[in-house]
Design a protein around this nucleic acid. Structure first.
Lengths: 159, 159
DNA sequence: GCCGCGCTACTCGGATAAGCCATGTCCGAGTTGAGTTGG
DNA sequence: CCAACTCAACTCGGACATGGCTTATCCGAGTAGCGCGGC
């Protein structure tokens, strides 16, 4: 099992964008240079975030990405599911209904215990991510780090 | 992100083996036929469970697999990690230390917030799986299902 | 009748090939701002 | 001086190659029971 690298990128980019003053945008090139990641591939993941309604993109000169909602209204789960997909990593193929000892349909109305256990664990995982909003992630950054960011992108800011 | 199919197989096989009377073994062929899955590939996952100390395998005539410990001492997490590996699906590549805005080493002594959030979610997932032992999974099976299993593998049983 | 040995059949285990998804890249469509020109 | 038009550069977005991991399979090493032969 391997999670897409884009999740890390998306989270960091969202945290970075959340520190920008209102209206300020960052291009995917800026984001890619900031973290030293391939620009085009990063764009692919940013696009997924736009589709999910987490980021907003605009084209043309002075275009770029910004948060589509205030950081308090964006959870880590929003970002992860936008990039990674909302389908559970575990898929129950109902093997209890297959093979030589297949159970008849009427005994399989309830989900099997295996599926239930995995679903429960997945729910716990999602809950943990849902309880973390972007604002708290930004607040948790050391002051010195936030100052570096602010100094780098002061850019007489908002438009 | 996609979890290996073998996790489902391993869990079901462990539940099945846990219902056998003490000493009774099942060959990988029996297990594969029972669930209608490819025998050789199933063996690969069963082998992983043996390496992890969850199952015990024996060769020769009347060989096969059995639980290495009583069902109460085996958790769902044991089985999942044995097959899926114990490495976290999320790997932090420390992109905060890379790229044009790389942070100096002395500001990165603590793990970054992103890594912490993902690790916390992963811990919640593991905890959920760890709280489920094999015995409770077997107990949760409908009585009719357990009877079918018993009837199928009565085989004057233990050796 | 009993013990030891060899054999055989059966088991698992690791080394060996295809398929699919994540990765990585490219070029094109769309948009916005600025410059220019005419009124 | 102002407004509208044209242009051009810059942006993102989707279509196109590549690699690694999961899947799938085969054959070989090891083992335990069984039968046979000798004592």
């Amino acid at each position: 099992m391997k999670m897409s690298q884009g999740v890390e990128w998306g989270l960091h980019c969202a945290i970075l964008l959340g520190q920008m003053p209102a209206g300020k945008k960052l291009t995917r090139r800026q984001l890619a240079l900031h973290y030293g990641v391939p620009e085009a591939y990063l764009g692919k993941h940013l696009n997924a975030l736009v589709r999910a309604g987490v980021l907003a993109a605009s084209g043309g000169p002075d275009g770029g990405y910004r948060l589509a909602r205030p950081p308090e209204a964006i959870t880590a789960l929003d970002i992860v599911t936008a990039i990674e997909g909302s389908t559970s990593p575990f898929v129950c193929t109902e093997i209890r209904q297959q093979g030589a000892a297949a159970l008849p349909r009427e005994l399989c109305l309830r989900p099997c215990g295996v599926s239930a256990v995995m679903a429960k664990a997945q729910a716990a995982w999602r809950k943990s991510l849902e309880d973390q909003d972007l604002a708290s992630l930004i607040e948790a950054l050391p002051r010195s780090v936030r100052e570096r960011i602010a100094a780098r992108y002061d850019a007489q800011s908002a438009r």
